[in-house]
Each structure stands twice: as structure tokens, then as C-alpha cells.
Design a protein around this nucleic acid. Sequence first.
DNA 1: CACCAGGCAAGTA
DNA 2: TACTTGCATGGT
Length: 229
Amino acid sequence: MNIPGLHRELETMNMSRHTFLLNMYGAMFDAMGPSEWWPGQSAFEICLGAILTQNTSWGNVEKAIWNLRARDLLQPGELFALPEDKLAELIRPAGYFRVKARRVKSFVHFLRREVGFDIGSLAEQDMDALRGKLLQVKGIGPETADSMLLYALDKPSFVVDAYTARICHRHGLVPSDIGYDELREFFMDVLPPDIYLFNEFHALFVRVGKKWCKKRNGLCADCPLFSFF
DNA sequence: CACCAGGCAAGTA
DNA sequence: TACTTGCATGGT
């Protein structure tokens, strides 16, 4: 893949993109240790969290999930039966609660017609075909779909998010306006489709980004990736 | 007070 | 197709 605006040619550093990315991964892992993502006790809970955390801090999502857990509602059938306005009130702390109630509803409707609420059997489907189906569900965009595929369904789909784009752009690897699918391919084109690698890579980007790559920040000398600038 | 958080869909031109 | 806007709570 040729990316216009790429202002760091890794080849001139006598290094392949494959090697460079794995070195970044190693530096982050050495500094942060394993992430043990995604938090959640079931595949369905992970999918739910993927919707609830859209543009929202995880702490707020935890409160919403706790509300559902306390009522034993962390199952697709239970949420299918729950009126949308009741669901909205329970997930209020996660923000955008009316929008997200609708999105959760559309997801459990998808589960019912696709696999009869048996989320485990989703994992038997081909990854690309399943990704296409998830993207047709209103409220599931590319990041949410890939999070579900990787963290809930054990599919090697690389998850890209705002931190991934920000970090890669600051390191001169990609243009700032790169699209989601292009950035995903930037990784998937050269990395082995390894579930553990993809899991940790995304988690480490988020953890490192939260700590050292906030929107306003410039370069931080204590960032584990500082030597990659 | 302003700004941000593990996005997405719908509306507009 | 390419931009813009609404959604909303809670932490810093």
C-alpha cells in the first residue's frame, strides 16, 4: 500500500514497516506490561462495552454495565425484552444514553435473527463476512465491529482508534487525515494475523496514548516511544 | 470555566 | 462525495 503524505520513508532507515511496528510494540509492552484486555466476563458483555465506550471514557461505561449486571441483564435475550427507555435510563452514566440504547437494541436484534442470541456461534463465521454483517447494524461502525471481532469473537481483526491514528501521525508514519480502513490495512498488511499481538497492540496504543499522547500534548521525553521520533 | 473521552449516523450542499 | 452536526455523562 502506498500512502500519500507519508513523510517518513522507513526504507531509507533500512527498516521494513513490519520491523518498525514490532519494535514500537515491543517498546510499549516493555514499558507497560500486558494489558489483559478486554475487560468483561462474557463475549456479550464485551460487545456491549464496545458500543457503550464509543467516544466515552471507560469509567463511565463501567457504571452503566454495573447497573445492568446488578439486574442480571447482561444477556442478549434480557436486553431484547427490556423496553428501550428503561435501557436508556440504566446506561445513562455512559453518555449519549438514548442513542446508545437504540444501538444496543439494534445489536441484540441482529443477534436474534443471525444466531438466535447464541453469540458463541457467531465466531464460527468467516471474519470478513461477519465484519460486513456487523457494519450493517446501525450503531456499529468500524472500530466497534473490529473490537467485537477481536476481543469478543477471537478474530484477528486489527482495531484502530483515535489514539492509534494520533500516535502514528505524530511519528510521521501516516497523514493526519488517514481513513479508518487505510490505517487498519497499514497494520494488517505487514503483521501476522495473531490474536494476541493485535489485542495487545491496540490496548497498548490506548494506554500509552492516554498517558503520553493527549490531544494538546507535544513530544514527551518519558514516553516509551520517544526514541521512535 | 474549557476540554476531553477506546464513534457513529444523519443531515447538508 | 465530502463536510458538518447532534448526541451527554463525568473527570481533569
